[in-house]
């Protein structure tokens, strides 16, 4: 087990290096002088030159690259081009909000999506199935930000049950959760559509399998056939996809944080993009890459754990 984890971790290193290099180069080819971006067009040539020197962008590209990687190796994400504050601190402050949102959305998606998928599979081509499939298709087509606005309009503006915008910090857990409901529901409902669709199709193929027929022929109760045999096998691909869902949710969280004015990695990234704060942008991308690698690693481990056919050693 430990060997497997170490092997996977080592395999992730070249991928991460490639990602970091692409990010580094992409940010360097961006048009415009970052020093001018900070100081404004009317700054004198000397001030600009001095700031360029201070930012380290007068150095040759390879030296900047080595410094960038060296900093990362020491856990240093650099300083914001605009505010000159350490980017790492800012990211650590907002990261829990994004993780909390993503986690809640997955819980909602599984809690609603798996039962919907199972029921629609069992009632194939019945009214319930059609309803569930229409719901899924509409859910798949719903832009996350638009669903967020609809929920905000009905539940916050019209009914005033939940706060429309903002977030509460973690020292007030109840208030924090109250603010979390609408953003989490937005992402969770869209996730529900994906998970329901996926569960339905896996369930349909499992129900047609021989061992399900055998279990029925043995005279097992229908409930234990469904839960003990069919659902258990159907869950393997669904669980393995949770990682992929989590990654796509981290993408959509950018929009939801924007709609509900919630602090988070996505909101930070949008702010950095608009201010042309390229060092912050670069560090956020590094953090995204790390999160994605960790999620992939976890998925891989869970997968080998739940699928008996894949036990290593």
């Amino acid at each position: 087990m430990l060997r497997h984890i170490v092997r996977r971790l080592l395999l992730a290193i070249p991928t991460l290096l490639a990602v970091f290099t692409i990010i580094f180069l992409l940010v360097r080819v961006a048009p415009g002088d970052p020093a001018v971006a900070v100081l404004g067009d009317r700054a004198s040539a000397e001030t600009v030159a001095a700031l360029r020197e201070k930012m380290g962008i007068n150095e040759p590209l390879w030296k900047q690259y080595v410094d960038f990687l060296g900093g990362l190796a020491q856990g240093d994400l650099g300083r914001s081009l605009i505010s000159q504050k350490p980017v790492g601190e800012q990211i650590l402050f907002v990261l829990p909000y994004t993780l909390e949102l993503t986690f809640a959305a997955i819980v909602i998606g599984l809690a609603l999506g798996v039962p919907t998928g199972v029921i629609t599979a069992l009632r194939r081509n019945k009214p319930v199935d059609y309803l569930g499939r229409i719901f899924s298709l509409v859910g798949l087509s719903f832009p996350a930000f638009y669903l967020g606005i609809l929920l905000m309009f009905f539940l916050a503006v019209k009914l005033n049950v939940f706060p429309a915008v903002g977030a509460a910090d973690f020292s007030q857990p109840l208030k924090n959760l109250h603010y979390l409901v609408l953003p989490a529901l937005t992402l969770g409902l869209i996730e529900t559509a994906y998970i329901a669709r996926m569960t339905r199709s896996v369930m349909l193929s499992v129900l047609a399998d021989d061992y399900v027929r055998t279990a029925r022929a043995k005279g097992l109760k229908e409930s234990s056939v469904l839960i003990g045999h069919a659902l258990r096998a159907a869950m393997i691909p669904v669980v393995s996809l949770i990682g992929i869902f989590a990654i796509s949710l981290i993408g959509s969280s950018v929009l939801v944080e924007e709609v509900f004015a919630r602090p988070g990695l996505g909101k930070l990234m949008v702010g950095a993009t608009k201010q042309k704060d390229y060092t912050t942008l670069q560090s956020i991308m590094v953090v995204y890459a790390l999160i994605i690698v960790i999620i992939n690693l976890l998925t891989d481990l869970v997968y080998t754990f739940i699928d008996p056919r894949l036990r290593y050693d």
């Binding site: 991928t15 490639a18 990602v19 692409i22 990010i23 992409l26 940010v27 080819v29 961006a30 048009p31 990654i247 796509s248 981290i250 993408g251 959509s252 950018v254 929009l255 990234m269 949008v270 950095a272 993009t273 042309k276 942008l281 991308m285 995204y288 890459a289 994605i292 690698v293 992939n296």
Partner: peptide, 21 residues
Amino acid sequence: RLTDVLLAFPDLITGLLVLAV
């Protein structure tokens, strides 16, 4: 390899980064 690296990121984040540049 290059494809896999690009695929790692959610579409919105790749789009955002490219547009930022």
